[in-house]
Amino acid sequence: MFGSTNSGANAYARVGVETGVAAASPHKLIVMLFEGAMVAISAAIQQMQAGDVQAKGKSISKAITIIDEGLRASLDKKVGGEIALNLDSLYEYMSNRLVIANLKNQPAILDEVYQLLRGLKDAWESIAPTQSTASAQPPVQPAVQSAPKASAYDTLAPMQSRLVKA
C-alpha cells in the first residue's frame, strides 16, 4: 500500500548523497568518487564470493564508470602535466584490471585495485586545503602561476576539480 521500506530507505539515501554532493567542495567530491569506487569494489568482492554473477558485474561496471567518467575524466592534463598523465595511466590500468577480474572471477585483482584507490584517496585527503587556504585561494588555479613553486594541492586540485567547473 505505501511501498516497501527498502525503497523508502533507498530514496532517503539518494537524497543524502545528492545533498552531500551539492554541498561538497571540489576536493571533497574527488574523495567521494574514490569512496564510491571502493564501495563498489567491496560489494563486487562479496558478490563474487557469493556467486552472484549479475550483481558482481553491475558493481564492477559501477567502479569502472566512477574511475573512467569521474576520476579519469576530471583530470586536467594541461595544468597537471606529468602527474595528470601518470594518474590517467593508473586509472586506465585500474579499469583494465577490473575487467579482467570480472572475466576471470579473481577477487585478488579486485583487492589490488581497491588498495590502489585507497592509497590515492589517502594521498588526496592528506593535501586537503585548510579552511584558511580554501577561503584565501580557490581550488581551481589558472594554468599560469605567478608563484615560484606550487604546492601539491595547487598542482593536484585543478586536475581532479575540473569535473565540478561550471
Rank of each mutant, 00 (worst) to 15 (best):
S146R: 01
I41F: 14
A50F: 05
A24Y: 08
L71T: 05
L116P: 02
L120M: 12
A84F: 06
G3T: 04
T65L: 12
I30K: 00
A143G: 03
D88F: 13
A23H: 09
G8D: 02
G36D: 06
S95D: 01
A134C: 01
P142W: 06
Q131R: 08
K104H: 05
A166Q: 11
L29P: 03
G57H: 15
D68T: 11
A22C: 04
K58I: 01
R97I: 00
L120E: 06
A108N: 07
I30W: 07
L110T: 00
L117Y: 06
S135W: 07
V39C: 02
S74G: 15
Q141H: 03
T130N: 12
Q115W: 02
S146E: 14
P138S: 05
N86Q: 08
Q145N: 06
L33S: 05
L85G: 12
Y114M: 06
Y12F: 13
E35R: 14
L29C: 03
A24K: 04
A43E: 10
I100E: 12
A55F: 12
G3E: 12
E18Q: 13
D76C: 09
W124Q: 08
R72Q: 15
S74W: 13
V21D: 14
L85H: 08
Y12T: 01
E82H: 13
M38Q: 15
I67C: 11
T65A: 15
Q106N: 13
M38W: 06
P129S: 08
Y153R: 08
G3S: 06
A143I: 05
A50Q: 10
K62E: 01
W124R: 06
A136D: 11
G119K: 11
I100D: 09
N96S: 06
V113M: 08
I127Y: 04
N96L: 05
Q141P: 04
A44G: 03
L87W: 11
V15N: 12
D122T: 13
N96H: 08
Y153N: 01
S95V: 00
A134G: 06
Q137T: 00
N6T: 09
L85K: 14
A63H: 09
K62F: 05
A152L: 11
K104S: 07
S132Y: 09
S151Y: 02
Q46A: 13
A108G: 02
K78Q: 09
G119Q: 10
M48D: 10
A123L: 12
I30Y: 06
S89M: 09
R162I: 03
A123K: 13
Q46N: 09
M94S: 05
I60D: 09
V140S: 05
K104D: 06
R118T: 00
S132E: 15
M94C: 12
A136T: 00
A43N: 12
I60N: 13
L98N: 02
L85N: 13
A108K: 07
A134V: 00
G80V: 01
Y93S: 09
A147Y: 03
A50N: 08
V15K: 15
R72M: 14
G70C: 10
E125F: 01
K78A: 08
I30N: 02
T133L: 15
Y93R: 04
